[in-house]
Nucleic acid binder design. Structure first.
Length: 464
RNA sequence: UCCCCGAUAGCUCAAUCGGUAGAGCGAGCGGCUGUUAACCGCUAGGUUGUAGGUUCGAGUCCUACUCGGGGAGCCA
């Protein structure tokens, strides 16, 4: 007998003989001589109704003892449903219990609503809930969408290293990777830790960005991207930060900042259009139970051109908005969360691409503009979650790059291979970084980033 | 890391002026019903986050710590 997944069973023709396998969500008994079992197998949002008649040989001994979480295989025939809520159901001729819940009273995912905070403590079982099943499917759909988008446009996926020996971006705290004895490490004559004795012969860390590495492949394969785990040892305790997260970083050669912004906009539109189509079931749930504006927001984003604005214009717009802010708005200062939210949620009411920031608040590798005051940086700001994309055109002129490295007092020798790119066939290029979990947050309306990754790693928390 | 708030039954919460612990859901048992957030009845379930302190007496007041939430910083 054919094994039908729930997503296919839901549209199967009455009369089809099938086996359905999954986990029990609920069981309801009827004295009319049957039990209704809602079975889910993760292949779609809805569970599938199994009707188990009382004449099954194990009806009293097993069927009536089924509880949430039990794994079962039901064999029978797809029939038109007599009840409301589903068009077809499986009338079981046999039902086998594959795995019992040994003590229903202790099963953490009981048949009631749970808070997300509670479910984080049972992350090994939370994927069985409506919400986390939906998040997992959306996460997958977006990941596949990213690869499809780039593949169709001739980009190559480059696997940049997880372990790195250079603190290239200077982007915050890094996790050290070491095999030295932490209690009694090898020492230099001066008493410091002797990293030449360490595994890599030097101090090594987990990557905070694949950008500098991927630039090398960009300057050979023209269009590339990274998509992998990224690590920040920042002591960030917010609903938007993880110590381990996934980042997407495209890099395009023979391209400037405008090309970069076009790419970012095209990518986001592609992803959300695809998501609304492919995961309509899960998106309907998010819109219904999590945030009743998500679908409208995504549709609007897909249809509307992003606003483009220079940093200078944004500062002016905020200053004359009449809004009162806790932090000052002044040219040369970085925009605060409240300013970004005001721009996207009140003044413009859609994603905004801010471009050309003052050089002093941006990284060394960003290309200096003609004015000598700003660099070709861009941030894509989204309503509610703020910065979703950060990127720039890279400084391709060696003399300008060196000047910036010196100004920021960075150790030039560490960037020898990055500088080589500017010596051997340099070319204008640009790229950006997209936080994958923030993308999922935006797409689903989920408030806390810890609920859009299977096993979140945050300060003081690495269970599971 | 900083500011604010919170922690009581398996889960979500209540408990008046400091006076000795309560509900809903879940679970177990029974009833009813082509049910679908099912419904009705009964039962079990507690070292009130941890460690101190004040008091005749602390879930309640004080201190420290741990964990969680909201906001901020850092950023994606």
């Amino acid at each position: 007998m054919a094994w039908l997944q729930v997503k296919d069973a839901a549209t199967a023709a009455p009369g089809t003989k099938a086996t359905i396998k999954g986990w029990v969500r609920t069981r309801r008994d009827s004295k009319a001589g049957l039990s209704f079992i809602a079975l889910h197998d993760g292949t779609c949002f809805d569970a599938f109704q199994i009707v188990a008649p009382a004449d099954l040989p194990n009806y009293e001994s097993e069927v009536q003892r089924l509880t949430s979480g039990c794994a079962v295989e039901a064999e029978g025939e797809i029939v038109a449903s007599q009840g409301k809520g589903q068009s077809v159901e499986l009338k079981a001729t046999a039902l086998r219990v594959v795995g019992w819940v040994d003590d229903p009273d202790t099963y953490p995912i009981s048949q009631k609503r749970h808070t997300f905070e509670y479910l984080r403590d049972v992350a090994h079982l939370r994927a069985r809930t409506n919400t986390f099943g939906a998040v997992a499917r959306v996460r997958h759909a977006l990941a596949m969408g990213v690869h499809r988008f780039f593949h169709e446009r001739g980009f190559y996926w480059v696997h940049t290293p997880i372990v790195t020996a250079s603190d290239c971006e200077g982007a915050g705290q890094m996790f050290r990777v070491s095999t030295l004895d932490a209690l009694n490490p090898a020492r230099t004559p001066e008493g410091g830790v002797d990293f030449t004795q360490d595994f890599f012969g030097r101090e090594a860390h987990l990557t905070v960005s694949g950008q500098l590495n991927v630039e090398t492949y960009c300057c050979a394969l023209s269009r590339v991207y990274t998509f992998g785990p990224t690590f920040r040892a920042e002591n960030s305790n917010t609903s938007r930060h993880l110590a381990e997260f996934w980042m997407i970083e495209p890099e395009i050669a023979f391209a400037n900042l405008a090309d970069n912004a076009d790419l970012a906009e095209a990518m986001l539109k592609h992803l959300f259009r695809m998501l609304l189509e492919e995961r309509a079931d899960d998106m309907a749930f998010f819109n219904d139970r999590i945030d009743n504006t998500v679908i409208q927001t995504l549709e609007h984003l897909v249809e509307t051109p992003f606003e483009r604005m220079t940093y200078t214009d944004a500062v002016a717009l905020l200053q004359k908005s009449g809004e009162t802010f806790e932090f000052p708005v002044e040219w040369g200062l970085d925009l605060q969360s409240e300013h970004e939210r005001c721009l996207t949620e009140k003044l413009v009411k859609k994603p905004v691409v801010l471009m050309n920031y003052p050089k002093d608040i941006k990284a060394f590798y960003m290309r200096m503009n003609e004015d000598g005051k700003t660099v070709a940086a861009m941030d894509v700001l989204a309503p509610r979650i703020g910065e979703i994309i950060g990127g720039s055109q890279r400084e391709e002129r060696l003399d300008m790059l060196d000047k910036r490295i010196d100004e920021m007092k960075l150790p030039k020798e560490n960037y020898w291979w990055y500088r080589d790119l500017r010596r051997y066939g340099t070319v204008p290029h640009a790229g950006f970084g997209l936080g994958f979990e923030r993308l999922i947050q935006f797409a689903t309306g989920m408030q806390n980033i810890r609920d859009v990754i299977p096993f979140p790693r945050t300060p003081g928390s690495a269970e599971f």
